[in-house]
Simulated assay, not measured.
Amino acid sequence: MSDSHFKIGSEKPLLHEAGADAPPLQGRALISRDMHVLAAAHQLPVHNAKLLDLLAIARTYEEELLLFNPKPPEEFAKLKHLATEVADYACRDNSSLTLSHRLFLLADSGLESDKLARQANGGLRSSDYGTDLGTYTVARKLSDDEARAVLEEYLDRAPSPGEWRHFWAMVGLAAWCSYAWCIMEETRNQRPVPARKQCHQLAESHLTKALGLYGED
């Protein structure tokens, strides 16, 4: 598995700008390698692993935020409601649990340098397989085409409609978790976090996309 080169607040994505018709050969090759390694790692047995929940991690950040600001921004409350709604749908998908490699996927993103994040993700953790895929997609700021490549390469086939909507739910929840961290960090340290706007846009876009896909049933 390659380390992420995406830094929170970075001006450039790892692979290429969104909007291309398909991932470039090099980008697709990198995604293919990473996803085949991840798919193999997810076959390892899950023993004595604590459950990792993106919504719960975001709540950890929210609790810290409320210590410094009992009234978070209105945008935070709106996005939290959207994330909770999407998470409810995603839980009903009953996706299989795997050992989570989220910490490894974020090792160079800046997010896991925070003590609260390490506490939230420390130790051996299991999670919905989509947690890792969502983390990978958001941490590398992938385009929609690259995101589709992530799921296709991981599954080694075209995704079903159910897998596609679940994937976007997990991407949205990963973005929401990143946004919650940004708000917490800004409030706690009283300084702006450049990635806040970007993470808000990603979370809103991906969660709305996922909710629309669930609404098609």
Rank of each mutant, 00 (worst) to 15 (best):
F68E: 07
R196S: 01
L14S: 09
A195Q: 03
L14A: 13
L213G: 01
H42E: 04
E85W: 11
Q198V: 03
A203S: 11
G172D: 08
K115A: 15
A56G: 06
Q43Y: 05
D93L: 15
A203H: 06
E75G: 09
H206D: 08
H200V: 02
H200A: 08
H101R: 09
T137P: 01
N189C: 08
E75K: 13
S109T: 08
V37R: 03
A39L: 05
V46S: 05
S100F: 05
Q119K: 15
R148A: 15
R188Q: 15
L155R: 08
A39H: 10
A174T: 04
A139E: 05
M170L: 15
N189R: 13
I183E: 03
P24Q: 11
S10C: 09
L66T: 11
I31L: 04
P73M: 13
R148V: 11
R102G: 05
G110V: 11
E75S: 12
L79Y: 04
H206Y: 08
M35L: 14
H42P: 06
Y154Q: 06
W164P: 01
T187L: 00
G215M: 02
R148F: 13
A195R: 00
R92W: 10
A29H: 07
D145P: 00
D132E: 09
T208C: 01
N69Y: 03
Y61Q: 07
H200S: 03
P70Q: 01
V193C: 02
L38F: 05
L142F: 10
V46F: 08
R165T: 13
C182K: 00
R140E: 00
A40L: 05
